[in-house]
């Protein structure tokens, strides 16, 4: 068991290193070397060589990557060539904002996605099932950022219920904080509610037909317990999908932050792009990729707990 878990962790880290290498290569594939960008078009070859030496850019590619990785494991993402600011500090500034929105959205998606999926699975062909099927196609199809725009128009501009944008940190008060992240999180969550509801419904409908559910009924268990018996077996694919969703949410959060004018990682990333600030961009994308990889690892481990057969396979 322990060895298998360790194996999965090692394999996830391997994937991350491999993907990180691709990222490292790609960030260096853009037009113009960092030295050119920082020093300007009229810098002399000597100045450029000096800059590259100072920042280790003249070393072999793989050794640059290894050095960067080594620093990252110590929490050091380097200093931006462009702004001179500490990349880790910039990420630490912006991350809580993005995290607040994503976590809240994830919570909404889990509660409503699984809740709707369960209710729809209990009565296949019923009114709720049909409505939720229809609504889930809408949820899958309406782009989050457009939903955000529409919500701003109705809830903020017309009804004046919520602030149209901006971000209030938790330290300024829970109500204000929640008010500021409600619309962004909701816009972000709708697609994932639909995704999770569909998966929950399909999976639960399948397990509800299982022989062990018939046994549970034959033994006189309450309907709540019967549903619970089916649900524990229906969850593994839902957990996998939820982890994927969590990882993907950060990407859409970037767009959503633009809509709501929120100073999260999106602003940092777009600044990095416009200033051609490689280290900052690399740091942010690597962080998102790590979150994605480890969310999937987490799902794997949760499923090992949920499914004793997998646990035994260790």
């Amino acid at each position: 068991m322990l060895r298998l878990v360790a194996g999965r962790i090692v394999s996830s880290i391997g994937t991350l290193l491999f993907v990180g290498l691709a990222l490292f290569a790609l960030t260096r594939s853009g037009p113009g070397s960092p030295a050119r960008i920082v020093l300007g078009a009229d810098a002399t070859a000597e100045q450029i060589a000096q800059f590259e030496q100072a920042h280790g850019l003249d070393r072999p590619f793989l050794s640059q990557y290894a050095a960067w990785l080594g620093d990252v494991t110590r929490g050091d993402f380097g200093k931006s060539f462009v702004t001179g600011r500490d990349v880790a500090a910039e990420i630490v500034n912006a991350l809580p904002v993005t995290l607040a929105i994503v976590l809240f959205a994830f919570l909404i998606a889990l509660v409503f996605g699984i809740g709707i999926g369960v209710l729809a699975a209990l009565k296949p062909g019923g009114a709720f099932d049909r409505i939720s099927r229809f609504a889930s196609v809408l949820g899958l199809s309406i782009p989050a950022f457009w939903l955000g725009i529409v919500l701003i128009r109705f809830l903020a501009v017309d009804l004046r219920l919520l602030p149209p944008g901006g971000y209030v940190p938790l330290s300024a008060g829970l109500t204000l904080h929640l008010q500021s992240i409600l619309m962004p999180s909701l816009s972000l969550a709708v697609y994932y509610i639909a995704v999770l509801a569909r998966m929950t419904q399909a999976s639960l409908q399948e397990t509800l037909r299982g022989d062990y559910v018939r046994t549970a009924r034959a033994m006189g268990l309450s309907s709540r317990q019967v549903v619970f018996y089916a649900l524990v077996n229906a969850l593994p694919p839902v957990v996998n999908l939820a982890a994927l969703s969590f990882g993907y949410m950060f990407g859409w959060a970037l767009i959503i932050e633009q809509v709501f004018n929120i100073p999260g990682l999106s602003r940092a990333l777009l600044n990095a792009i416009s200033q051609r600030d490689f280290l900052l961009l690399q740091g942010i994308v690597f962080l998102f990729t790590a979150i994605f990889v480890f969310a999937n690892l987490g799902a794997d481990l949760i499923n090992r707990v949920l499914d004793p057969r997998q646990r035994a396979a260790a």
């Binding site: 034959a218 033994m219 309907s223 077996n233």
Partner: peptide, 22 residues
């Protein structure tokens, strides 16, 4: 529900799938 399991109980053909694996 009250009768099943208390007064009448039923066991099925395939014990493999009739017990909850989780």
């Amino acid at each position: 529900r009250a009768l099943r399991g208390r007064d009448i109980a039923m066991v099925f053909q395939d014990p493999q799938s009739s017990l909850n694996p989780a």
